[in-house]
């Protein structure tokens, strides 16, 4: 499974989204389950899946799925192969 596919599954599982709702530009304010506990859950999931620990500032500053991709790519985890 590609990194993008893994991230998609993580986002779906974390916020209980339907697959049709997933977009890279999906924003936090569009997802009612992207609350403070959702942020913690996403951070734990990113660590389990990609081995990277978000800093508290990174985790609370996430505004979209694209932000997750951008941070992980900056740590050498490719999403556009």
């Amino acid at each position: 499974m590609s990194n993008l596919e893994q991230l998609k599954q993580l986002i779906l599982d974390t916020f209980l989204l339907d697959p049709s709702e997933f977009r890279l530009d999906l924003r936090r304010e569009e997802v009612e389950t992207w609350d403070s506990l959702g942020v913690v859950s996403l951070a734990v999931g990113v660590h389990e899946t990609f081995g990277y620990h978000f800093t508290p500032e990174e985790a609370t500053g996430l505004e979209s799925v694209q932000d997750v991709v951008r941070i992980l790519e900056s740590k050498g985890i490719p999403f556009h192969e």
């Binding site: 916020f15 209980l16 339907d18 009612e32 506990l37 859950s41």
Partner: peptide, 13 residues
């Protein structure tokens, strides 16, 4: 999962 999302806060999942 949709029912949990619609009806329950995350702590109740």
């Amino acid at each position: 999962l949709s029912a949990f999302r619609a009806l329950y806060p995350r702590a109740q999942w």
